[in-house]
């Protein structure tokens, strides 16, 4: 299948072509899924080298799963997001040096002095990223998938393996926490002038 003709193909069709040994499908899927998965990993980890490692691992798993992929079983993009998300959360927990029971955390912690200092020095996007980094993992994951990756709540529920209501609750709590963290920076970052 020529590369130009692949823009209209679904991820699932491309993965089937990949499993049949079509190099153009390999290139098309890499260009389609790689940047999105990388963007998500970067939002979650805020570390380019770690994001690259994790997405490489996720894509490797996808290529190896391709021959046994059954059409209609799962959306390829959802599957990739789920693997990347889980790998990112594992990495974040290792950074913290142990398991954190995120579901037991009802509200996000207060921003640390270093986070507040970081907010003062960053631009708008970076300010949001710094605030995101202070959220509990699951809230951060829900907010990133919903508001930065633009996924629907049912898709996010599939990725996070929870119900749609739980997704809505996590993202609502995340937004509320972000609003509290970023409110003092509005004037500084020019939002009051908009």
């Amino acid at each position: 299948m020529p590369y130009d003709a692949m823009s209209d193909c679904s991820d699932e069709t491309l993965l089937a072509a990949y499993a049949a040994g079509d190099p153009a499908a390999a290139r098309a899927l890499t260009m389609r899924l790689g940047p999105r998965a990388f963007g998500h990993a970067m939002r979650m980890l805020n570390d380019r080298a770690e994001a690259e490692d994790i997405v490489q691992e996720a894509l490797l798993r996808l290529w190896r799963a391709a021959p046994g992929w059954r059409e209609g079983e799962a959306k390829v993009s959802t599957w990739v997001y789920r693997v990347v998300s889980n790998l990112c959360i594992d990495r974040i927990r290792r950074r913290r040096g142990g398991h954190v029971d995120i579901d037991a955390v009802a509200e996000p912690p207060d921003p640390s002095p270093s986070a507040e200092q970081g907010l003062q020095d960053t631009a708008r996007g970076q300010a949001l990223q710094a605030a995101l980094d202070t959220l509990p993992d699951r809230q951060k994951q829900a907010v990133v998938l919903r508001h930065l990756e633009g996924l629907s709540n049912p898709e996010i529920a599939g990725i996070m393996d929870i119900g749609v209501r739980a997704v809505e609750s996590l993202s609502a709590r995340g937004r509320k926490a972000l609003q509290g963290l970023l409110a003092p920076r509005r004037a500084e970052l020019g939002y009051d002038d908009d």
């Binding site: 790689g34 940047p35 990388f38 963007g39 970067m42 939002r43 380019r48 994001a51 690259e52 997405v55 631009a123 708008r124 996007g125 970076q126 300010a127 949001l128 990223q129 919903r146 508001h147 930065l148 633009g150 993202s171 609502a172 937004r175 972000l178 609003q179 970023l182 939002y191 908009d194």
Partner: peptide
């Protein structure tokens, strides 16, 4: 989604416009 974002919408818009690229 826009309704959900409320006052946070400008922050999310800025972050979406500045998406990390590999």
């Amino acid at each position: 989604r826009k309704a959900e974002e409320g006052a946070m919408a400008p922050w999310f818009e800025a972050a979406r416009a500045d998406a990390p690229a590999p």
